[in-house]
C-alpha cells in the first residue's frame, strides 16, 4: 500500500510541476503583449491617428510625431520581398516536386533549405558587400533582397510541401486528361495546393515585416522622408525600434513602443490569416 501511495504522490507532484513550468514558459508572451499594449498604446493614444503617417520627432521634442516613413517602408519592403522571393521559392519548389529525380532539383532543394541556417545578420552583411558598397549607398532594393534571402527557405518549404502533398489521384486525373506539366500545374495543382502556397507567401510576409538583422546594414534607416526610390535608403519599423531603443532619449523610447504596437498588430494579423488557412505553421 505504501508503495502505491508514493507512486500517486509522485504522479501528483509531476503533474503540478509540469503545469507550473509550462505556465512560466508561456508567461513571457503575455507579459510582452501586455507591455506593448500598455506602453505602445499610450504612445499611440498620445499621438493619435497621425502616428501612422507623421515622421518621428526630434530627440528633444515633446510631440511624439509618428512612424509614417517607417511604416510605409515596411509595407514596401514586404511587397518587394515577395516580388523577388516568391518566384524563386515557387519555381524551385515546382522543380523539386515535378522533377524529383533530377540532380539539380535535389541539390537546389537542399541549398534553398540550407539558407535557413545562415544567421540573418550574416545575410545583411553579405548583401551590404554585394549591393551597398558597389552602389555607394543604402537602398530599399538591398534590404528587400536581404529579406527575400531570409524568407526564401520558409516560403520554399511550405510551397514544396503543399505541392508534394497533392493526392496522387489528382495527379493521375490531371495527366490522364492529357495535360502537360505546366498546364497541370497552373490549372490544377496550384488550385488544389492554393492554401499551402498562400501560407508560404504569408510566412514570407511575416519574416519580411519582422526581421531586423538583415536590414541593419542594407536600408540605411531613412526615417524622416517618405519613399524616394528603390535605389534610395528607406526605413522599416523593426529597425526603427532597434535603433530608437538604444538611444538615451525618452521620446524615442516612446516612439519605439508605439512602433512595437504597430509591428505586433501586423504580425498578429499575418499569423491569424495563416492560421485560418493551414493547420501547421513553422516559423
Amino acid at each position: 500500500m505504501k508503495r502505491l501511495d508514493r507512486r500517486i504522490i509522485m504522479d501528483r507532484f509531476f503533474k503540478y510541476l509540469v503545469i507550473v513550468i509550462s505556465l512560466i514558459a508561456l508567461m513571457p508572451l503575455f507579459y510582452i503583449i501586455t507591455s506593448i499594449l500598455v506602453h505602445g498604446g499610450s504612445t499611440v493614444l498620445k499621438a493619435g491617428i497621425s502616428f501612422l503617417y507623421e515622421p518621428p520627432p526630434s530627440p528633444l521634442s515633446t510631440n511624439v510625431g509618428g512612424i509614417g516613413p517607417s511604416l510605409l517602408g515596411t509595407i514596401l519592403l514586404m511587397t518587394i520581398t515577395i516580388i523577388i522571393g516568391l518566384p524563386l521559392a515557387f519555381f524551385t519548389a515546382v522543380l523539386a516536386v515535378e522533377y524529383p529525380n533530377s540532380i539539380i532539383a535535389k541539390f537546389v532543394g537542399i541549398l534553398t533549405r540550407s539558407f535557413i541556417e545562415i544567421p540573418t545578420i550574416l545575410i545583411g552583411v553579405l548583401v551590404y558587400t554585394i549591393m551597398v558598397l558597389p552602389m555607394g549607398r543604402f537602398s530599399a532594393i538591398a534590404g528587400a533582397i536581404a529579406l527575400a534571402l531570409v524568407s526564401l527557405p520558409y516560403m520554399y518549404t511550405h510551397i514544396e510541401n503543399a505541392l508534394a502533398s497533392i493526392p496522387w489521384i489528382y495527379r493521375e486525373a490531371a495527366y490522364g486528361l492529357g495535360l502537360t506539366k505546366p498546364k497541370a500545374l497552373f490549372h490544377i495543382f496550384m488550385g488544389i495546393a492554393r492554401r499551402g502556397i498562400v501560407a508560404g507567401i504569408l510566412i514570407g510576409l511575416a519574416k519580411a515585416s519582422g526581421e531586423t538583422a538583415p536590414l541593419l546594414f542594407t536600408i540605411g534607416g531613412s526615417r524622416h522622408s517618405y519613399f524616394q526610390g528603390l535605389d534610395k535608403p528607406i526605413d522599416a519599423i523593426p529597425l526603427l525600434i532597434y535603433e530608437f531603443a538604444q538611444t538615451p532619449y525618452n521620446i524615442y523610447h516612446e516612439v519605439a513602443w508605439g512602433a512595437a504596437l504597430i509591428l505586433l498588430l501586423i504580425y498578429l494579423g499575418v499569423f491569424a490569416t495563416l492560421r485560418l488557412l493551414v493547420k501547421k505553421v513553422e516559423l
Binding site: Y170, L177, G178, I188, I192
Partner: peptide, 26 residues
Amino acid sequence: RKQIGMVFQTPNPFPHLSIYDNVALG
C-alpha cells in the same frame, strides 16, 4: 493521352473546380 480518356477507381473530381469546370477543363 489527349485521345484517351480515363476514369479511376476512386472518384477524383478536382476539388477546387466547379462541376462545369471539371468537365470543361480538359
